[in-house]
Design a protein around this nucleic acid. Structure first.
Lengths: 340, 340
DNA sequence: TTGAAAGCGCTAACAC
DNA sequence: GTGTTAGCGCTTTCAA
């Protein structure tokens, strides 16, 4: 591979000159020289060494995407359709901005911090971080960061995030159930933190608003670990007899449960109604077609990347914490029942 | 951020010494010094500058994953579940080997070559390359490369690839259909190149073996472009009346078609049988459960990464072109019919 | 309009 | 055991 220095020698000019024309600073160079240099660059198939450039400029053209996988949420992080879609969308936007993306997946926040510092990434997009992680990061990493879908407690106030109206979305879909005559409704999730917690809150609000009694019984925990899932599904099958509708924290679980119940002979929505959250491909594939809460992942990625680049360019942000809206999409998994 | 040089000054030793203990070459350093250095590293929270290291060592610790998206195959490359799964699996294996992965997606092979040269990646995994691309790559990129799922014509002989028994898989599932009394069978794909071509060949072989007439009519082209898909699906619906079974080149299409037909009132498998290829999550979600050809993506990723690292370490490969096996998985989308 | 030279942080050959 | 030093390829300041 040719270097600038070699080309400089060939042409009998200085490296500065070559560098200048590479960077289009041609007003400082005579037309004649520009032409000769460009021709040589072409002929030699010169490719800049990014490492050298990064070192000299103390930057990297890398955007880090750091993900702390929720332990055992679904099986593997790599199989999580939401993360995969978000990741590839972000990569897409990053690349279109002339940067490269590097993925840092680790359960250890220190490892993440070390890696991104080592690579000297120009900015960071983060998912799955806790309040403690955020504090740590702010302390050790001094470049732009934007979080995705994060809820931090009040120990940290100043951070940039792009989230979703989890409360509203789940409220709306629950309300839709209620409007269809449902009163005995359960919420199903595999934990009660972050998004899932706020979705639960939305669910809860809707019931309370309609003066429907709510207790611990209305929250069903699904256990997604490989060896527990079967039993958990069976439990849900049994519990489901006490409800006329189920609101699931994600389409993934909605579809899993739907299929489990249907395979057991339960009719949906005749015997029980189900709704999900996300409106991903699962919701579109399953039959009956799943009614669910729609979120726009591509938009989420886009906003995150845009915010990050604004910060990198020292522009001011119109808002630190963007909450993207949700819409409910009505399909065929809910039955209208006579209020009892 | 602290540098080696700074630490050397603080301790009054040379950078070599620091560098040595960082790299565990402690046999050349006195215990005393090692201890002092380690303590300082700890205290300063020293993080190596990878760019500098890469520059000095002329390597990068980066494995490039280069993908040339098949124009308009599905909507966006980023939504392709197969690519996403493969990508994240590869990333996983690469990271476990202490390397980093960088993604290079472009329809322009020159752009890809430039990028990976620029970053000085230590090895390359490639998908979606044509014979011409391969020739170009071999000419311009002198480091280890392994291709995935590639079929090249005989202009190129020496290359490392990990593929799949596309012919066998499609042959077996077609045979299964035939054994169930089906004679009027169509193959559906959105193109007739690469994998899809070889899958078609397997399909064809199975029919010929059983002395079933085959003509152009047996190949149905599905048009996946957004504005054509609807019409294409309608065409397939009409064409399907002439067949008792459909073998689809992917689960994605199998499910799409299944749902389209079912939404039109067609009963599956009673009215028509369908099988797919891949055995991905779609096949598991859809009802009736899809009978299909199973492939192990995780294994494919693993083999590709292993081959690459062997090449990087100058070990010899037991085989250049690995063809992973397929198995057929029988579920409920095929009906046994009385031969006519 | 052009060039010399220092320096980015790290490695490694070699000398002490 | 430890230090000196010359790069790696590129950018950039400053002088000519």
């Amino acid at each position: 591979m040719v270097t600038i220095k070699q080309m400089a020698e060939m042409l009998g000019v200085s490296t500065t000159t070559i560098s200048n024309v590479i960077h289009g600073k041609t007003k400082e160079v005579s037309k004649e020289t520009v032409k000769r240099v460009n021709e040589l660059i072409e002929a030699c198939e010169y490719v800049p060494n990014i490492n050298a450039r990064n070192l000299a400029q103390n930057k990297s053209k890398i955007i880090g995407l750091a993900i702390k996988p929720r332990q055992s949420k679904y099986k593997k992080t790599t199989k999580d359709i939401f993360i995969n879609e978000l990741t590839s969308d972000i990569e897409d936007y990053v690349r279109k901005n002339g940067y490269y993306m590097m993925l840092y997946i680790s359960e250890d926040i220190y490892e993440i911090i070390n890696s991104v510092s080592s690579w000297n990434v120009d900015g960071l997009i983060l998912m799955g971080m806790s309040t403690d992680d955020c504090i740590m990061l702010k302390q050790k990493f001094k470049k732009p960061m934007v979080f995705i879908d994060s809820y931090f407690d009040n120990r940290v106030v100043d951070y940039v995030n792009v989230g979703l109206d989890d409360v509203g979305g789940c409220h709306d879909i629950t309300k839709y159930l209620i409007e269809n005559g449902h009163k005995k409704i359960a919420y199903i999730a595999d934990n009660c933190e972050g998004c899932d917690k706020y979705r639960y809150l939305g669910f809860r609000n809707a019931l309370i608003e309609s003066k429907i009694m709510i207790s611990d019984q209305n929250f069903i925990l699904i256990q997604s670990e490989r060896n527990k899932l079967g039993a958990s599904l069976e439990d849900i099958f049994n519990a489901s007899k006490h409800f006329t509708a189920l609101v699931c924290a994600s389409d993934y679980y909605a579809v899993l449960i739907m299929n489990y119940l249907m395979d057991k002979g339960v009719k949906i929505p005749e015997d029980i109604s189900i709704v999900g959250f996300d409106d991903n491909i699962y919701a579109q594939i399953v039959r009956p077609h799943l009614s669910t809460v729609h979120q726009d992942i591509s938009e989420k990625s886009k906003v995150a990347v845009e915010k990050l680049f604004k910060m990198i360019e020292n522009e001011s942000l119109s808002e630190k914490n963007t909450i993207l809206p949700t819409t409910i999409v009505i399909r065929n998994s809910v039955k209208k029942i006579a209020g009892k």
